[in-house]
Nucleic acid binder design. Structure first.
Lengths: 338, 338
DNA sequence: CCGGGTATTCAAAGCGATTTCAAATTTCGA
DNA sequence: TCGAAATTTGAAATCGCTTTGAATACCCGG
């Protein structure tokens, strides 16, 4: 069913039918209703390619993922949020899976020249993200989930990682902990750097020395965290508290503590960052987990909003949001032992 | 940079340039080289919309996900596999996030009439999957990850859930276990039904009675599994073995067993199904986890292959694969106590 | 009953590629 | 050297939609 067929069926020209369906004012109200009703009844939908060619807009937003690392639970949740909002606005998500950084760059170049997407969502940025620079240079509109320091104006949404970590670390210090371990994300990522800054700021403001042995950088997996925590627990004097970068990391730390025959919340405190996974609830753990909390799915929803704003023509440098992070105390954190 | 510009630049007609780039035989080899070189140098890429309109093919495969449940770790892995293979062939993935079943059906209808995608990947099917029937009816080519019983011919790839569960259950029975709990997936899903069949078959072949209290259906989350296992461990006589539907489920069972003061592999055995998540390695658990194993990422890769075959015109009923599942024994399973 | 808006409708020209069909050029055997 | 076949190129139609610019129908005061 093409527009032509529909028009023929109605005894109208393509022009009128097109206008009627797209809400142009210069079409008779009665005609509009008749067209709408018939289109509905016949299940007419414009051919996406033709529409895109004619309008120059693809109503599609691109998302490039490095398959190996990035497609984990965090991205799933973010994607769920992103997609639900974009879906409401009939904007599609084009996902490209790449192996390497070089592939990722190539993917953006292709996207630019083939005009498949109107905009791109960028995520997990580094401090000086070259991808962001490339996108700016290619003039592909984009929204960054996170932050980066480049010259071009950037639309972004981030959470206050520094503030969150400073609060959490400060809280543990106030409880008397002096040996606090930080299981941070991989080096170079902005969020990890921000967290480190918050951690160090809290330590130094209380005059507590920083011990590099108590800080690590790794992927946020149960497994990596388990091993790192296990090693750290053997350091003397041992840490009495852990800051875990994610809920998976938190679970790994839990296991390591239990494995070491220690009791959580008493011998060792843990505060984990909670991105709010529907299947991993801090309240249902044993003990319940103290967390810094910020819904990554909500962030996805909002990033979609921002992307729509950017597409609507809002200047990138006027589109940015920094979200505060809650500190939710539960059983896994308590006063330092003795 | 349009084809027209490139042609002008070369002093050739669009026709010749188009042919040169698309490898048609009737173009002079020298001309072809010159065109290819210039196109490369100028970074020409055909406009995707125009190309799609002209050819009628979109080189895009659709994936509809219900945001709430389906977008978990399993889908991430599957998507990673799918995307890596499709990417090699320059086929895009169009992801649509929906809330409800009704939305999902609507999404397929839209896809059909707007011709955004050439084919669709269907997953998590039920025994008589209506979505598959709809797609067949709409004549949208599709590949099913899993199986279903509908009349139309269906291209599919599935793992041998029945065989895997029969083997695992049989193994535990051979070790003397008589009270074996099954933490299965949600009711109605084909894979869950298949696993139940395998479980029951193994029990009945050994003359061991089936106790409905030892079988549950739930999402594959750490949390749900923890609670279900905790409840089951209070039944008397208590189960001495658990079959966990996924690694997350396995972790939940681990926690419940430890919480009950029991020792894994001695008091209670566990065998979990391992979809091979890069961040959740059965060998790195305490104790190491016995598993039935099949890589869901590999399945994604292969499903992509099948989709390409279907698009190339291979009849759907000639495209199907059933993958065997390995049983890998580690420390979490052992002889029944006493 | 006529002229000048205003409301509606339509024919045709894009959008940027592919592809059909015809034309121009080259090749080659007699 | 000539003419037929093979090679190589190009003009124009096509895909299905939007949008411009022109045409027609309608309304109303004078």
């Amino acid at each position: 069913m093409r527009l032509k067929d529909l028009a023929q069926h109605l005894g109208l020209s393509q022009t009128t039918v097109s206008r009627a369906l797209n809400g142009y004012p210069e079409v008779n109200e009665a005609t509009r209703r008749r067209v709408a009703e018939t289109a509905e009844r016949l299940g007419y939908r414009p051919n996406a390619s033709a529409l895109r060619l004619a309008t120059g807009r693809s109503s599609t937003i691109g998302l490039v993922l490095r398959g190996a690392h990035e497609l984990g639970p965090h991205m799933s949740e973010f994607l769920a949020g992103l997609g639900s909002k974009l879906g409401e606005h009939e904007v599609d998500i084009l996902v490209t899976i790449v192996e390497s950084y070089a592939d990722e760059v190539a993917a953006y170049r292709r996207a630019a020249s083939s005009q498949k997407v109107d905009a791109v969502i960028l995520h997990s940025p580094t401090i000086n993200d070259e991808r962001a620079e490339l996108l700016a240079e290619l003039k592909i509109p984009f929204v960054l989930h996170g932050r980066t320091n480049i010259n071009a104006p950037v639309a972004w949404l981030d959470i206050d990682n520094t503030g969150a970590m400073e609060r959490a670390t400060g809280h543990l210090l106030d409880l008397g902990h002096r040996r606090i371990a930080l299981l941070n994300g991989v080096k170079g990522r902005t969020f990890a750097e921000h967290r480190e800054i918050g951690y160090l700021a809290a330590l130094s403001s209380r005059g507590v020395p920083f011990d590099p042995a108590l800080m690590s950088n790794s992927l946020f997996t149960d497994e990596a965290a388990f091993r790192l925590a296990q090693n750290m627990l053997e350091i003397r004097p041992a840490p009495t508290a852990f800051l875990a970068g994610s809920m998976m990391t938190g679970l790994g730390v839990f296991r390591a503590i239990r494995q070491a025959g220690l009791v959580m919340g008493r011998d060792v405190s843990v505060i984990a960052h909670d991105d709010v996974f529907p299947y991993l609830n801090a309240d249902n753990m044993y003990p319940t987990m103290s967390t810094t909390r910020s819904s990554i799915r909500q962030a996805g929803v909002r990033v979609a909003d921002l992307a729509l704003q950017v597409l609507a023509g809002k200047p990138a440098d006027q589109v940015c949001e920094l979200w505060p992070v809650e500190l939710v105390l539960r059983e896994s954190s308590g006063p330092a032992p003795q």
